[in-house]
Amino acid sequence: MKRIHFSLREWLQHTASAGYVAKGIIYLTIGWLALLTTIGLGGSESGASDVIRKIALWPFGRVLLALMGLGLTAYVLWRLAQAFWDTERKGNDWKGWLQRLGFAISGGLYATLAWQCATLIFHSLSQSQGSGSSQNTEQLMGIPGGRWLLLAIGLVFVGVGFHQLVRAWRRAYRKNWHLQSRPNPPLPLLEAIARLGLAARGVTFLLIGGLLALAAWRLSPGDAQGLGAALDLLAHQPFGDWLLGAVAVGLIAYGGYCFINAGYRRVRHQRH
């Protein structure tokens, strides 16, 4: 049984690491494109789906998409393991189930990105561009109670955004790092990257949640947009270039934080 637990932990470790690498690439690209926009060298305010479509146009884009799709699938499997096997030992009280539900939702969101990678690999780019955020939101609002469901989703994003800011402030990520197995880790640098990245992601999630809630309140699907629209909103504020630049650097740092987790993240398994 001990060997089985060890094998499960090894599998989860490799799965989590591959997933964090894929996630890190996406956030690094998002941040880099936003930073290029800020300094006037092209770029764009892109979300994760936009970035995946851009990667498809790169040299060897389909090969990169295949690798990223596998990494994202691994991340989804790890999130589902956290949710259903309780590998993080969150427990069965209401708080534990809420956290495990968050893992499952996160897995579902990244499953859509993995599916998009597969679609771009096996079909033409034009076929993958059929539905956007506004169209999906319009469909959601068309079902009974869809407006309130959209509002609830927006509030979840706001809650996650605040949670990311709290994690950055309290340095809660430290408990998930197995630093003792790495000789002389550059801890101040790792912490600076983690705190900046989590704070930037928290800000963007607050903006996304606000846009979703606004769409539900106004019954306007066009207001419901993702990360790209949140970055565009920042860019059009007073001192927008500075705001967008700061968040862009933060999203690049969050990509770095994902790479840190690929190497340092402690992966647990459920006790029996």
Rank of each mutant, 00 (worst) to 15 (best):
S124G: 15
S44P: 02
L243Y: 03
Y254Q: 07
L98I: 01
S17L: 01
T119N: 07
L64W: 12
Q225D: 09
L196Y: 08
W217G: 01
R171T: 08
Q237G: 08
W11Y: 09
L179A: 12
L179E: 09
G250W: 11
R218C: 02
A81K: 08
I208L: 04
G161H: 06
Q116H: 15
R195G: 09
A215H: 03
A172F: 09
T137A: 08
V247E: 02
T112E: 03
R3E: 13
W85F: 14
G161L: 08
H236P: 02
W97D: 11
G132R: 03
L211T: 02
P188L: 04
A200K: 01
N176W: 13
H123T: 14
M1T: 11
H14V: 06
F239C: 10
G71F: 02
A262C: 10
E191F: 05
I25S: 05
S128V: 04
G202W: 01
Q99D: 08
E10V: 00
L28G: 03
V158H: 04
L109R: 04
N261C: 15
G145F: 04
G263Y: 11
W217Q: 04
N176G: 12
G263M: 05
S46D: 13
G24R: 00
F103Q: 04
Q99W: 13
L212P: 02
L33D: 07
I4F: 10
L233D: 02
G222E: 15
L155W: 12
G159E: 13
G159R: 12
G255L: 07
C258V: 01
L150M: 04
Y254L: 14
F60N: 12
A18M: 12
H178M: 12
R271W: 00
A248I: 06
S131F: 15
D241P: 03
